[in-house]
Design a binder for these strands. Structure first.
Lengths: 165, 165
DNA sequence: GGTGAAAGGTCATTAAG
DNA sequence: CTTAATGACCTTTCACC
């Protein structure tokens, strides 16, 4: 079994990440391959789900939501799906995971300000089934969400799950 | 002061998120406005930083990293910047925040498998300055990262910080 | 490879705050 | 008066067959 992507895929993803506006033809020039190759690779990557799309990357801070926080929620037994639906209905909840450990769910929320965060938290936790919540405010973001290093690593791995002693 | 985006901006972002492949001309048709308007709005949104770009959305799971975890790290005083540099050098660290609370940093990491997660964690915490680490594995992801509801809310807010009692 | 179709830019006019 | 939207025109560039 080989890695899900090869070196060319990796270079292509890197190139598109750094300069999203360029087209297929420009890619083929930069990568020194035929345009058909680039198109085929792109189709394959999208078909395999490696690339989900090219949607606009929206910055919540620029939308007026500069405050980010992570809330760990403890859920009472059997109320999981109701809680999920509730959290999904809150626009300020950007992301929700169920996790192992004493907390049962972890969600990322944003707010207009620290004061406004109280309003959001009240809305988030104001629901039957949420037993306890602890919130941590994000101060700095030294590493913004990125996948390029991961792509580079995946592209140079020969086997899908390389041997590790 | 008005909201950073208006209703047309919101419709444009929503449209581009739902159908990223369509171009400016198609947008202008769907939104029933002139092409120049769409172009001007897009330029403005990018200039203001509301839209950061149109890079490919890469799915780590499809790259062979289906396991996601959140690690809370406790850092010894004064070692913050070294730890940041170290974490930034680990490809599996997708994101890093400094946070309030007993933990000092929160990072999102991915791995090939639960077993492989051990290797990643060892690499993450194997660094002077990291006192303690607690890791929560993400099981399900009921709400994938999304900003559309937030965009819709921002677009309908008249003032940047609407009055809240 | 050739061809129809967009993207991207500029302009004058018009409308609205 | 300032800002924005519109439709027209043009050139370059790309996507598709």
């Amino acid at each position: 079994m080989h890695s899900p992507i090869d070196a060319l895929d990796g270079r292509l993803i890197t190139l598109l990440t750094e300069e999203p506006r360029i087209g297929v033809l420009e890619c083929s020039r930069r990568l020194q391959v035929a345009r058909g190759t680039v198109q085929a690779r792109l189709d394959r990557l999208q078909a395999r789900g490696v690339i989900n799309g090219f949607g606009p990357e929206v910055e919540p801070a620029a939308l007026g939501y500069p405050v980010t926080a992570f809330a760990t929620l403890e859920i009472s037994q059997g109320q999981g799906s109701d809680v999920r639906a509730h959290l999904a209905s809150v626009p300020e909840v950007l992301e929700l995971h169920t996790i192992t450990g004493q907390g049962d769910m972890l969600c990322r929320i944003v707010a207009h300000s620290n004061a406004d965060l109280q309003r959001v938290i009240d809305r988030v936790v104001g629901f039957d089934g949420i037993v306890r919540a602890s919130t941590a405010i994000a101060l700095e973001n030294p590493v913004r969400y990125r996948v390029l290093p991961l792509v580079a690593q995946a592209a140079t791995e020969e086997a899908e799950y390389p041997e590790r002693p």
